Amino acid sequence: MYDTILVPTDGSEQADAAIDHAVSLARAHDATVHLLYVADSNRDSVTTLGGEVVDALEGEGERILEEATERLDPAVDVVDAIETGGPVETILDYADLVDADVIVMGTHGRRGIDRYLLGSTTERVVRLSSVPVLTIREE
């Protein structure tokens, strides 16, 4: 049923809960988990360090993906990627690129005015995705 599971991560507890759930799915279906960090190009992230231009968000993404990969079951196939762009569009494009069968995403579980005012990447992915999206609320 699932061969390719996409899990966008930002290093949050909600994303970690989604990763844990995705790994359980991967074990059950012998699937590959794709961990994706999106370096949000809508944010100013370029800094100068020792004369070299370093994208701080990509550096943060490398750290987050490394930490996530270290805590995963080594029996599960994992592919990680850092993509630059707007989070929603990039997640949807990457899901198409890898032919994802499901996207597993964490959610804060906001309701009412908080959800309306703050918006939600997960909610927008759910609304726009042609791929099923499984949302996981961190306990």
Rank of each mutant, 00 (worst) to 15 (best):
I5W: 02
L6N: 07
L6K: 00
V7M: 12
V7A: 15
V7R: 05
P8C: 05
P8T: 04
T9V: 07
D10W: 05
G11Q: 06
S12I: 05
S12K: 04
D16Y: 00
A17Y: 12
A18S: 10
I19S: 00
H21R: 15
H21N: 10
A22M: 04
S24A: 15
S24Q: 14
L25R: 01
L25N: 01
A26V: 07
A26W: 03
R27A: 01
D30Y: 03
T32W: 07
V33M: 09
L35D: 13
L36T: 00
A39D: 09
R43M: 04
D44K: 08
D44Q: 05
S45L: 09
S45H: 14
T47M: 10
L49V: 08
L49E: 11
G51E: 11
G51M: 14
E52N: 14
E52L: 15
V53H: 11
V54F: 03
D55V: 07
L57H: 08
E60Y: 08
G61N: 00
G61F: 11
E62S: 08
E62M: 11
R63C: 06
I64T: 15
E67T: 03
E67R: 10
A68S: 05
L72G: 02
D73A: 02
D73M: 07
A75E: 14
V78I: 15
V79E: 14
V79N: 06
V79G: 00
V79H: 11
A81E: 12
A81M: 09
I82S: 09
I82N: 09
T84I: 12
G85T: 04
G85W: 00
G86T: 06
G86H: 14
P87C: 01
P87H: 04
V88M: 00
E89R: 12
E89Y: 13
E89T: 06
T90W: 03
T90N: 10
I91L: 04
I91D: 03
L92W: 04
L92V: 10
L92F: 06
D93G: 11
D93Q: 10
D93V: 07
A95V: 02
D96R: 15
V98R: 03
V98L: 08
D99Q: 11
D101V: 00
I103R: 14
V104T: 12
V104A: 08
H108Q: 15
H108R: 14
H108L: 15
G109V: 08
R110V: 11
R111H: 07
G112F: 05
G112A: 09
I113K: 02
I113F: 13
R115I: 05
R115D: 08
Y116M: 12
Y116N: 12
Y116H: 15
L117P: 13
L118T: 02
L118A: 14
L118W: 05
T121Q: 11
V126S: 07
V126I: 14
R127L: 07
L128K: 12
L128A: 13
S129E: 10
S129K: 09
S130N: 08
V131G: 06
V131N: 09
L134V: 10
L134K: 12
T135L: 10
T135D: 04
E138K: 10
E139T: 13
